[in-house]
Design a protein around this nucleic acid. Structure first.
Lengths: 214, 214
DNA sequence: GTAGTAACTGACCGCAAGTCATTTAATCAA
DNA sequence: TTGATTAAATGACTTGCGGTCAGTTACTAC
């Protein structure tokens, strides 16, 4: 009985094709400006068909965003599978997030919307669950690594690894969001180079977490 | 000839009344969900009239947001007009921003949208200019205070005041945004109390900036 | 009282999200 | 092979909202 299996595969394939089309359109136009008709045309399907696979435009958007989360997770995994000391790996994570910001800007921007409280109301429970799962995987990776840094004695033992992860992430994310939207403004009006700010602030935070100043 | 002056006052008054109505509706519904018809009804005017005073829904939104900036600026001014030492005032600014977050949550949320890069394209040049002016006033206040802290010798002289301001702001803003949307999630899944995280991270950053550990 | 002007109105337009009756294609049973 | 059944896909249609503008009302000046 290979037919139901084949059908299942084809359905999955179509879901992916729709996501490919959506990704192209969303990257070019953003959530607000992109239209379902455009995505349908890019997918060479009718608009109605899109709704057989995704409940709403926002769900489709989250589907693309989850791809972005997976890419980030894979980059983080790569950054931490070297033979370097744990403390260096933690530093690598920070650098890798910045690389993600530079190389996958469109995905990075999608994370904005996830932070908008009103966005959440327009999204299905299922997609929301998938997002949180993807999110959690990344957090766990970072927190576990910091815990290891504590166990190995490089990081001060009174540091809470989850709190530490949140601090590092909030700081770098906050600065990168500014880079994305207002880099020129900060340069011209305040005379601030945000890339330097990112480096400095991360160094300051690392400093406070390390046992020995290095 | 008091008639043109009176007309001008009435026009200004109407602008304010429209803003009052828009504020009520935007606070309740958010930018996306609120409709111009709702705002018109709240203002007891027809929809067309709104467009005689504001160019678009987004412009009206920014008009409300500027009120929020003014409130923040006044709170910051208040926090820095005490007789305490400069270094304490800087700390007060951080506390005041958190108070703003707690007491003026709806205004705080409006700042989100300003960070959305695609939002900017839908907004008139005039409003944008007003926003940047309001924004700049706040930055100037913070940066000047940090400069004073350097001059008085409490803050390490190699610190760049503008960079320092950006770091403090990015960090606290990033954490408060998380508080706003995902406080429960962080508590339950990661076991992290974001209020503690805010306090700790600010303490860490202050520490790195001070000449003497205090 | 009337001409002229500024303020205001709401029916209307265009566009886009989402729906659903209908059509098309694939599978199966006889 | 063919007719019945089910699944997949379609696109015309509904609904709702941002924005417009021809027409109305209210006020001012002469």
């Amino acid at each position: 009985m290979g037919i139901p299996e084949r059908k299942e595969r084809e359905k999955e394939h179509r879901r992916e094709e729709i996501l490919n089309a959506a990704q192209r359109v969303f990257f070019e136009k953003g959530l607000q400006t992109a239209t379902m008709d455009e995505i349908a045309e890019a997918a060479e399907l009718s608009k109605g068909t899109l709704y057989l696979y995704y409940k709403s435009k926002e769900d489709l958007y989250l589907g693309v965003m989850i791809r972005g989360m997976d890419i980030l997770y894979n980059m983080f995994t790569e950054a931490t599978s070297t033979n370097e000391p744990t403390i260096v790996k933690i530093k690598n994570l920070g650098d890798m997030y910045y690389r993600y910001f530079k190389e996958h800007r469109s995905f990075f921007r999608m994370f904005y919307f996830f932070q908008n409280p009103l966005f959440h109301t327009q999204v299905s429970q299922e997609m929301m669950g998938l997002c949180q799962a993807g999110n959690q995987k990344v957090w766990k990776l970072v927190i576990d690594l910091i815990q290891r840094g504590i166990d190995e004695g490089d990081i001060r033992p009174e540091v809470d690894p989850a709190e530490c992860a949140v601090i590092l992430w909030s700081n770098s994310n906050g600065i990168m969001m500014r880079m994305d939207t207002q880099e020129e403004y900060f340069k011209n009006v305040l005379g601030v180079d945000l890339e330097r700010v990112l480096q400095k602030s991360m160094a300051m935070l690392f400093q406070s977490m390390l046992r020995d100043p290095a």
